[in-house]
Design a protein around this nucleic acid. Sequence first.
DNA 1: TCTATTTCATGTAACGTTTCATATAAATTT
DNA 2: AAATTTATATGAAACGTTACATGAAATAGA
Lengths: 333, 333
Amino acid sequence: MPKENTAPTMKDVAREAGVALGTVSKVVNGLPVGDSYRVRVEEAIRKLNYQVNSYAQGLKANKTYTVALLIPNTVDPFYAALTYHINIALLKRKYRMLLCATDFDPRQEQEYISMAQHNKVDGIIGLTYNPGLVVEENTPFIAIDRSMGPGIPCVACDNFAGGQLAAEKLADLGCKNVAFLRTGSALVNEPNKRKAGFETGCLTRGLSYEMKILDDADSFDEFEAFLADHIINGKLTFDGIFCVTDRLAYLILKVLRKLHQRVPEDVQLIGFDGIQSFGDIDYHCSTIVQPVPEIAEMCVELLLRENMLVKPPLVCLPVTYAYGGTTREKSEE
Amino acid sequence: MPKENTAPTMKDVAREAGVALGTVSKVVNGLPVGDSYRVRVEEAIRKLNYQVNSYAQGLKANKTYTVALLIPNTVDPFYAALTYHINIALLKRKYRMLLCATDFDPRQEQEYISMAQHNKVDGIIGLTYNPGLVVEENTPFIAIDRSMGPGIPCVACDNFAGGQLAAEKLADLGCKNVAFLRTGSALVNEPNKRKAGFETGCLTRGLSYEMKILDDADSFDEFEAFLADHIINGKLTFDGIFCVTDRLAYLILKVLRKLHQRVPEDVQLIGFDGIQSFGDIDYHCSTIVQPVPEIAEMCVELLLRENMLVKPPLVCLPVTYAYGGTTREKSEE
DNA sequence: TCTATTTCATGTAACGTTTCATATAAATTT
DNA sequence: AAATTTATATGAAACGTTACATGAAATAGA
């Protein structure tokens, strides 16, 4: 009779089915077992409502079936979307996700990484900004949006192509004079290629352009000063602006409103990331959309891939453009 | 000499320090040990960079040090905020969080709950809407925003007081004729008290009011029809609107704009939840703010409380009002 | 100085799995 | 029909902990 008030164990199943412990283990793991045995064991499992204890499995196998997600927070919509899709991709493979919100704190980032060496997680998917972060080459680590060094794959959207696409869109929509706006000093990360891509797009399409880069994030005033400087006779000299993130686009939209510039009539605005209001209602702005579900799937696939000898240093996934009200659309596209 | 390529175990520490296994265990768990032993063990721990294997601990103690969070997704900003703060509260107590995104699917909700009975998690914090959900009385479960039955505590903000506060604010700001708008058919949940609270507030302050409740979420057209019906000579008969969520307020704001009603000049709008753009920039609308960090802390505290005999059926946490641009403020408040 | 008592480190068993060497029964060969 | 091979179920050991019974050393009492 199974013990009171406790989940049934393999031993209980073995007793119930009248077979040996090892036989139950084989059935549970899909290894070859005589049919009559298999049937009896399966019946006992159903009767007792048995489920394997994956912590005991992990102890034996020296695996934890847990992957840590290192991410600043889950409140920023882009991080939230990544968290959601990575969680789904992991659960699909019977892995748990240990959520490690680092709040951009280098100390916490390093601490969580040291966990991996201690076999507390089987691997890490990390979106980090701390330039001094040390990840040893043999650590099972997948970096998002940043190359961490040899042997550590990086997954990102095609940031260069995204920048280029933004320039082309603005050109298609009739812009002549455009600007690129950026904040953040994280020069180590892939998203910096957005600038280069935009520049290339502008050159290809003959757009005249200007670049404005600030170290501080959310520095409303400085951008206001910059844009105010480019107003002649009440009219902005730019007819198109590409912001490095949707978050920045949100701020710039407010700046433009304050400066009495109409969007998209006077100036068209394109952001980057594909953030949606309340997670799903509509796009904050016209934007270059990152393929978040695909990025998530790729991170998990790479991390759990058996043959880790084949480690691509960088995987770029394609971006798309989405209309979000801050551009003048030619047609229904 | 410790084994190659493997995290050091207690055995390694014991060998290094020249003490018995049990002594190391005691040191690790802060149990009384002779000073000379403690020093040697601590030194060995530092030298080998040892960390306990909490899966082995859990196996022994029949605990997993893991709590499941059942939540529809992490993309909706309110869910994202809860996820973030619950994660922090759990990590603070050395517990892991298993994120279970249910996507509102009753099958998944029930499946994750059955996990708890199988000792795969030590407890569950759940934000669910499925009315048929079965949670047995002895299950360690804390429900958010919904009473699940006897023995299952519910944590929520003070929804009634929130509704009342919204009515009072609108009255303070000079409204005479107000409306309450709501979507969603989840009549089982605590947030329904927002309506009763608002009604009470209106009666107390002598506001005339109207209630509009739709089953479908996000039914832009129906609300547009409703509000259009209340426009006389181009002017809305309401001078104040209370929306059951910030999400709905976002939609209503669009409806009002379409109907050429100015906010807050013609009509003032108050939402509920305290959602901020991009997680932290500014409030979407003037709103009743839920104390999300406190809700998270309370859920975790209740779930992990030793003496679970003292199970309060319902814990209400206080709400506050925040200005978010959709109300006419008298002063700097 | 010798026994009685206390103190505290030791080492073994157990938690729920998996794996592997062993044993048993069936199938094949001669 | 006896001997050999093959197939496959069995059960013990091990994974890294904790808890408890054991025993050795140190202190106190006479």
